[in-house]
């Protein structure tokens, strides 16, 4: 699903690179944590995978497509295969839950019929079937994150990227989000989650890729957060 070979990314010439010679291979259907301190390169990694930025060096292949060779106009079609979840939810405040999720289908040209069947289905999956008419500011943080996961998943992408999805949530709510992501993973979707939620990582016992100063310092199946600090 994701193959990164000798990937280096520097934002400026006079600064050390954000990522340095990163090699990662993630199979379809895996659930992977990407951990590290702030500034270790987690967000850069996610942005590289959605081709928001291009690597300075190395090759990245996502879902069989080489990102550095990819034409600009094809990028949107890549992103339809990648669901994205963020710490700050990125919901539209003037749209209801239903509309926020439907928006993701509307703008890629899905028919009304598809929207009408898929949106309620995904809302049921995230447990918000009765919150359709609510606006984001009427929802709790956890509920808002569920909406944003519903939006990321409504198109059934084979890959889901989550950048600190529990960063703004309390531990109990985070747990709910984690079990939701697990469920999504069980449907066959590859999930890559950047986080620094130590307890979460330790309790889940999934593959962990640890970054430090832009380098992969550990890649471990059924791993823990590590960093004995």
């Amino acid at each position: 699903m994701i193959v990164m070979e000798h990937v280096t990314k520097s934002y400026a010439k006079d600064k050390p690179p954000a990522l340095k010679d990163v090699n990662v291979d993630i199979e379809a259907g895996e659930f992977v944590f990407c951990v590290g301190h702030s500034g270790s390169g987690k967000s850069t990694l996610i942005k590289l995978l959605t081709r928001e930025i291009l690597p300075t060096d190395g090759t990245i292949v996502v879902a069989g497509q080489d990102l550095s060779q990819m034409k600009n106009w094809k990028v949107p079609y890549l992103r339809r295969n990648i669901g994205c979840v963020f710490q700050d939810f990125k919901l539209l405040p003037n749209k209801t839950t239903y509309e926020n999720v439907a928006f993701a289908l509307e703008v890629i040209g899905r028919s009304r019929h598809v929207i009408r069947t898929q949106v309620p289905e995904v809302l049921r999956l995230v447990g918000l079937e009765d919150k359709g008419p609510s606006y984001p500011d009427e929802l709790s943080g956890g509920e808002q994150q569920r909406v944003s996961i519903a939006r990321a998943f409504v198109n059934r992408p084979p890959l889901l990227l989550a950048d600190e999805p529990t960063g703004n949530l309390d531990p109990n709510t985070s747990l709910g989000i984690m079990s939701l992501l697990s469920r999504i993973n069980k449907t066959g979707t590859t999930v890559l989650m950047a986080t620094h939620d130590r307890e979460m990582v330790d309790s889940m016992r999934r593959r962990v890729i640890a970054l430090e100063n832009g380098k992969v310092i550990r890649d471990q199946d059924r791993g823990v957060y590590g960093y004995g600090d």
Binding site: P76, R79, F103, N155
Partner: peptide, 12 residues
């Protein structure tokens, strides 16, 4: 930003 995120085409 969200349109780009979910893969709306550039022309859209």
């Amino acid at each position: 930003a969200i349109m780009r995120l979910v893969g709306a085409s550039n022309w859209f």
